[in-house]
Amino acid sequence: MAGNRGRGRAAYTFNIEAVGFSRGDKLPDVVLKPPPLFPDTDYKPVPLKTGESEEYILALKQELRETVKRMPYFMETPEEKQDIERYSKRYMKVYKEEWIPDWRRLPREMMPRKKCKKAGSKPTKMKDTDKGTSLTNTADVLKKIEELEKKGDGEKSDEENEETEGSKEKNKEDEDDEDDAAEQEEYDEEEQEEENDYINSYFDNGDDFGVDSDDNMDEATY
């Protein structure tokens, strides 16, 4: 074996005949380019299955593709303005139903901010919170009465009492206001972000949430 090597013959550590090359054969060239994009195939593909069910599924698929475009979930990219406004375009607009997500199932940060609220999501949200507040309201009133009894002085007006108590503990009642406050916060952040590109609120643990709402509440309860 060792004698065969040496003189200019490429040295392999194994017996090259075992791989199917006889002694004098030229080895294939090294391939340095990627395989072709559309390679020739030795065998042609078999025809597709056809039948009633296959055709029905095909029709379903094509119909589905058109339907999803008309669903409210399909978000279109804002088109760049064309130089010539086409007359036909006015009639091409597809009618889409309004979609109001169930905010109860979504994280709170998903809620649109004020300016979008007017566009339709506000009413449902208001109703939701109203339902909640009416319950907590009665509970609060009961609490207040109790507290008043303890203190024994009826001099303070109800309103004042409400105010002091409200600032002591965070009430559910003010969820709306809190939301508003939070939104206002977000607004400010937005503006700041544009200036310095940092995300200020990323590590916000929500502690300053309550403080703000208390400030706000003063105006809101009156």
Binding site: L106, P107, R108, E109, K170, N171, K172, G206
Partner: peptide
């Protein structure tokens, strides 16, 4: 009286 959680 905890603040509502950020996500349900």
């Amino acid at each position: 009286p905890t603040p509502p959680p950020p996500a349900p």
